[in-house]
Computed example of a mutant assay.
Amino acid sequence: MGDLDSLDLGGFGVYTFDFEHQPAALMRESIQELEDRGWPAFWIPELAGREAFTHAGYLLSCTRRIAVVNGIARIWSREAPWAYGAALLLADAYPGRHVLGLGFGGAPRPGVTPLAAMAAYLDDMDAVRPSNPLPQTPMRRILAAYGPKMLELARDRSAGALTYHVTVEHTARAREILGPDAFLGVEHAVLFETDPARARAAAREHLHRYLNSPYNIAKFRRLGYPDEEITGGGSDRLVDDLVFWGDLDTIVAKLGAHRDAGADHVAIQVIGVEPGRSAMPYWRMLGDALLPQGAGVRRTT
């Protein structure tokens, strides 16, 4: 898709649900610190009431350099022309800093497959003839994709794909399907806990809704896990593959495996943080370990 095919978000970024539950002032303080520490990209979901484009626009307005990625904006939350218009404005206002991640999202809809729904949504977006000013830097979009056909759609009709709760083996397969040029961003959950029993208990709590979601169950089956490893809270093998736990060195090494397998970017989701507390101490540790030395530039005002 021409200019949509070029996307560079750096090697690692931050993915978090935390901002769904924080006041605006704390969100601003947190993302400004992440930017100052050199994080190149910040990923936000659309889940608990924070509307995707308002959320992204606010974070972009608080910052100067960091990219803000919708991971994802749900296609059922708004009609395609309005998503197109919103993303167009953000591309104009914040050149090169917003990425529209689109996904099926929500509960299954009878008679509607994710692939058909996404293809139709992209058709509607591409049919828009905007009366708004066009940005100098093109709008960029990616698709949430897991199976081969959705990955092919992401390759052919967007800048690339975002995967969520997948294995390193899936990353290698996804890269084969996407080819060498399309962007591949991989979310992965991490947990700073070295005790296996405590780590797996926290990981299972995090994975509970995904292990009971029809689309995710289908995804885990495609990844090669039999039903007996998916039910009952998930096997140790499944849990350990989907949540990297341990000390900093262990977690960093496992995250690097996604890059070795073909991911352009790994969006790191820190879990296991007590409600009401921030994951910032862990983001600081991860940034020191993963980001290029000198990447942080402190703001002067």
Rank of each mutant, 00 (worst) to 15 (best):
Ala202Trp: 04
Ala145Lys: 01
Glu176Met: 05
Pro81Glu: 07
Asp5Glu: 15
Pro110Ser: 07
Gly106Asn: 04
Asp236Tyr: 12
Pro95Gly: 08
Gln32Val: 12
Leu90Cys: 08
Arg97Phe: 11
Val270Lys: 02
Arg277Gln: 15
Leu223Gly: 06
Arg140Tyr: 09
Arg259Leu: 12
Tyr58Ser: 10
Pro180Ser: 13
Arg204Leu: 02
Ala93Leu: 15
Gly262Leu: 04
Gly256Gln: 10
Asp156Glu: 15
Gln293His: 13
Phe220Ser: 01
Thr54His: 14
Pro292Asn: 05
Asp8Gln: 13
Asp18Tyr: 09
Gly49Phe: 04
Val243Trp: 03
Glu20His: 09
His206Trp: 13
Gly287Lys: 01
Arg200Lys: 07
Pro281Leu: 03
Met125Phe: 10
Leu191Arg: 06
Val14Glu: 06
Thr231Ile: 12
Leu134Met: 11
Asp240Leu: 03
Gly85His: 13
Leu90Trp: 13
Ala145His: 04
Ala182Leu: 09
Val112Pro: 07
Gln32Ile: 06
Ala154Trp: 06
His21Val: 01
Ala289Met: 07
Ala218Gly: 11
Pro45Asn: 02
Phe192Ala: 03
Pro114Asp: 03
Ala172Val: 09
Arg78Lys: 14
Ala159Glu: 06
Arg200His: 07
Arg109Phe: 12
Arg204Asp: 07
Gly296Met: 06
Asp8His: 13
Pro180Asp: 15
Ala116Cys: 04
Gly147Tyr: 13
Pro81Thr: 11
Leu191Ala: 08
Leu47Gln: 13
Ala182Arg: 10
Thr231Pro: 02
Ala48Phe: 13
Gly2Gln: 06
